[in-house]
Design a binder for these strands. Sequence first.
RNA 1: CGGGGCGUAGCGCAGUCUGGUAGCGCGCACGGUUCGGGACCGUGAGGUCGGAGGUUCGAAUCCUCUCGCCCCGACCA
Length: 509
Amino acid sequence: MPYHSHFTSVSSVISVAEQFMAKALPKRSENYSEWYNEIVKRADLAENSAVRGCMVIKPYGFAIWEKMQRALDDMFKATGHQNAYFPLFVPKSFLEKEEEHAEGFAKECAVVTHYRLKANPEGGLMVDPNAKLEEELIIRPTSEAVIWNTYKNWIQSWRDLPLLINQWCNIVRWEMRTRLFLRTTEFLWQEGHTAHATEQEAVEETERMLGVYATFAEDWIALPVLKGLKSPNERFAGAIETYCIEALMQDGKALQSGTSHFLGQNFAKAFDVKFVNKENEQEYAWATSWGVSTRLMGALIMAHSDDQGLVLPPKLAPIQVVIIPIYRSPEDLVTISEAVAPIVEELKASGISVKYDDNDNQRSGWKFAEYELRGVPIRLGLGMRDLEAGTVEVARRDNLSKESRPLEGIADHVKTLLNEIQVNIYQKAFKFREDNTYRVDTWDAFKDQIEKGGFIMAHWDGTAETEEKIKEETKATIRCIPLDAVEEVGKCIYSGADSKMRVVFARAY
RNA sequence: CGGGGCGUAGCGCAGUCUGGUAGCGCGCACGGUUCGGGACCGUGAGGUCGGAGGUUCGAAUCCUCUCGCCCCGACCA
């Protein structure tokens, strides 16, 4: 058979299969990244927009982000921070002031050069060449520059410190390639920017906020994270030290999920932010900045979801419980609805978000599949048979189990079960990380393991050259130097030079 | 910027090689039968085939130019 016709027959078989399989997701084991893209779209979280590299976050996805925001914002407030808002535009001259910072972000900035359009003689609109800005405006890739330029006016005395500010906003980084939630040209985040009187205070703040991120990741996203320091190569542009939380995704790749930077006096010096200390001496303020972004949505999806769709931790699920009536006649539906009403009330009174889906357009089987795809933690199914028996079917999304329970006391059971699911999801992810963390001592074993994925704990000689070589040869990067690393004498996996502790390597998003 | 692919109904695609009435599935609307894991039957609406120019009696199909998107690399939270 000639190659050409062979090819044709294969592709037609695939297209027939796809027609039958139209409703199933791609499997993680077969094509992880396609599985991810499909979940994002099919669970109605986000979609690509008409604007290159920019996403539309859809209501269901945004509801999850809002829950994350709420929880994080409460934690920021509890640690003494206030929200404020700074401009979207950063004059180029501001960005230039901190040299390393400028260099680090220069290659990915969107630049505004004009302020007016005019009618194009050939139709449509054109940039008005007479409306050129005297100074270009950069769309913020991060706000250190504009914020420290402002802090100059806010800080005079040690009494003005610490200054603890957070901002929720959008930023733009002109990345070459984008993926929904994981890397988009525009994304949403929060950025905390604090100023302190002493180095020690600033370092404490940096570590405190890293702790907040780790707690949020573990308690809310049910995502176990490693806390650590970035190697100098991976440091934020302009930082003295970058702390991070690193998580392991189901395909064995790492995802940096949050960063907290100790900026020293770099920005205070660049923007001339001085204060008078108690001894009446002029001193530069000490800075931190820290942020998490909509990338956390990507972490949430990739950490827990399965081949049936999204799996949401109850604490972040927009709908925690869905109740589905199973009926034939309209009369049956009325009867079931009457039985469901008090349950809905009781759950709502306990602060549980519950949806009773009595939509008549879809059948129950369709709804089961749909809510599984959307990751709703608990589903209650209630039919006439149940009413007669005084039971309800309780289905868990995390382990796909189902059981029949007495209708009596079901609200209490649901409350308990939501907590149980939250814990179970975390433990599952924790076990996955443990099972996929390897101590490796030889270069051959390293190269072998990096192909299989996971976190690799290995010795490193501490040099940027070695780090760079390892990246070139294996695409693995140092994800972090764990904060809880124990001293251990060893030899660098690559150079054989002396090393005092193991660091974490992985391929990353 | 290098390599590959794709623009045809809201979505997913066939048709292009070999020019001749623009199709299929899903979704949507209406009617009916169904209903404990993504139901079925019937009827119907929906298209400047990415754009511009050219060849031709005739272009989704051939030629030229152009715009856009996706995937793989370099960059990155």
